[in-house]
């Protein structure tokens, strides 16, 4: 039973059929099961970010339907959509997106605050998540006082605080060095293994993608191919690099 299903998603920027319109997604289908860890890869302009924005309901598809937990989110509007996102989805951004005026702990519990949860519940959750991701010692510091990797782990904790079914991450390692990247990706592994939360990741970082179970390659607004993880992460990494080479080569046949 898939937790997320996208059927025949088309996204056209500008007036459809007009000279200046751009088709970002061309009738894309995608099905993701509970507990999946999927990486979406592809060259710039292949429609990765557009897809993620549509899957998360931040953007509306021109046609097609996105269903998450039996809710057609492409039909939800305004505040219903915002509430759905808050309760069912967790977001992680390349630039962390933390509030400078709040401490790490306050940033983490912010979505719970909005839900009006009790103080005890929030404290417990903050302690649990910060323990899980190794940021318990910086809970009372402000974002500008901690490193990028710590900021992103704070963002991961915030994304998970309302126990969403799906985590959507847009280039989460894009602003991080390799060791911080590894730490973040290990966080995602934990999320999938220990909390059985679904993770959808958009990245161009093969190293980050190698932590996932399946990599979906996009090209020109459509799914080009996908590969499933078999065996260790190291061999999957090699597999992705090899695949990307042939795939990348294919786009440069002149």
């Amino acid at each position: 039973m898939p937790i997320l299903e996208a059927g025949n998603i088309v996204k056209v920027y500008g007036e459809s059929g007009q000279e200046h319109s751009t088709t970002a997604l061309k009738g894309l289908d995608l099905s993701i099961n509970k507990g999946d860890f999927i990486a979406i890869m592809g060259p710039s302009g292949s429609g990765k970010s557009t897809l993620l924005n549509i899957l998360s309901g931040m953007d509306q598809p021109t046609s097609g339907v996105v269903t998450i937990k039996d809710e057609k989110i492409s039909e939800l509007k305004g505040d219903d959509l915002a509430l759905f996102r808050r309760r069912e989805l967790g977001f992680i951004f390349q630039d962390f997106n933390l509030l400078d005026s709040l401490t790490v702990k306050e940033n983490i519990i912010l979505p719970m605050v909005l839900e009006g949860k009790s103080a005890d519940e929030m404290d417990k959750r903050a302690v649990y998540l910060s323990g899980l991701f190794g940021i318990e010692s910086i809970l009372n510091q402000y974002p500008y006082q901690i490193s990028g990797g710590q900021q992103q782990r704070t963002a991961v904790s915030r994304a998970l605080v309302n126990e969403p079914g799906i985590i959507l991450a847009d280039e989460p390692t894009g602003n991080l060095d390799s060791s911080s990247s590894a730490a973040i990706m290990e966080c995602f592994e934990k999320v999938v293994e220990e909390l059985s939360t679904t993770v959808i990741l958009v990245t161009h970082d093969v190293f980050a993608a190698s932590y996932s179970q399946r990599v979906v390659f996009l090209q020109d607004g459509a799914i080009h191919s996908s590969i499933q993880k078999q065996g260790s992460r190291e061999s999957f990494l090699k597999q992705i690099i090899d695949h990307q080479r042939t795939f990348g080569g294919a786009s440069h046949v002149f």
Binding site: R86, F91, P111, L114
Partner: peptide
């Protein structure tokens, strides 16, 4: 920017 960030993580317009 601050409120648009909040909106992205699911804060509604009335909120």
């Amino acid at each position: 920017l601050r409120f648009s960030n909040l909106h992205r993580i699911g804060v509604t317009v009335p909120e």
